[in-house]
Amino acid sequence: AQASVVANQLIPINTRLTLVMMRSEVVTPVGIPAEDIPALVSMQVNRAVPLGTTLMPDMVKGYA
């Protein structure tokens, strides 16, 4: 199954992502693919992302 990017902590709005904030997990619905984690580093989220939330393309500025 495809692993997705999941928030490893609460990520406040406009925060630049770092590796420690993200983990890969097989979840439904599928979000951003886990292999994109390196590309997500330093991108900003456009909303607060609670712990355990799957990151979707529309949550990350410049990803989609």
Rank of each mutant, 00 (worst) to 15 (best):
A1S: 10
Q2W: 12
Q2N: 07
A3W: 07
A3E: 08
S4N: 02
V6K: 04
V6A: 03
V6G: 00
A7T: 09
A7M: 04
N8I: 09
Q9P: 01
L10V: 11
L10E: 13
I11K: 01
I11P: 00
I11Q: 01
I11R: 00
I11D: 01
P12T: 09
I13L: 08
I13V: 15
N14S: 09
T15S: 12
R16A: 15
R16G: 14
L17D: 01
L17S: 00
T18C: 04
T18K: 13
L19Y: 06
V20E: 13
M21G: 03
M22C: 03
R23F: 04
R23G: 10
V26A: 12
V26P: 08
V27I: 08
T28V: 11
T28W: 11
V30L: 15
V30Y: 14
V30R: 14
G31K: 00
G31P: 01
G31H: 02
I32P: 00
I32Q: 00
I32A: 02
P33E: 04
E35C: 05
E35N: 13
D36W: 08
D36K: 14
I37L: 12
I37S: 05
I37T: 10
P38D: 13
A39K: 15
L40M: 05
V41D: 04
V41N: 05
S42K: 12
Q44Y: 14
V45D: 02
N46H: 08
R47Q: 10
A48K: 09
A48H: 11
A48L: 08
A48R: 09
A48D: 15
P50V: 11
P50R: 12
P50Q: 09
G52H: 10
G52A: 06
T53D: 09
T53L: 08
T54N: 02
L55N: 00
M56N: 09
M56I: 09
P57I: 06
D58P: 07
V60F: 06
V60K: 01
V60I: 08
V60M: 05
K61E: 15
K61C: 04
G62T: 07
Y63D: 04
Y63H: 08
Y63E: 05
Y63G: 05
A64H: 12
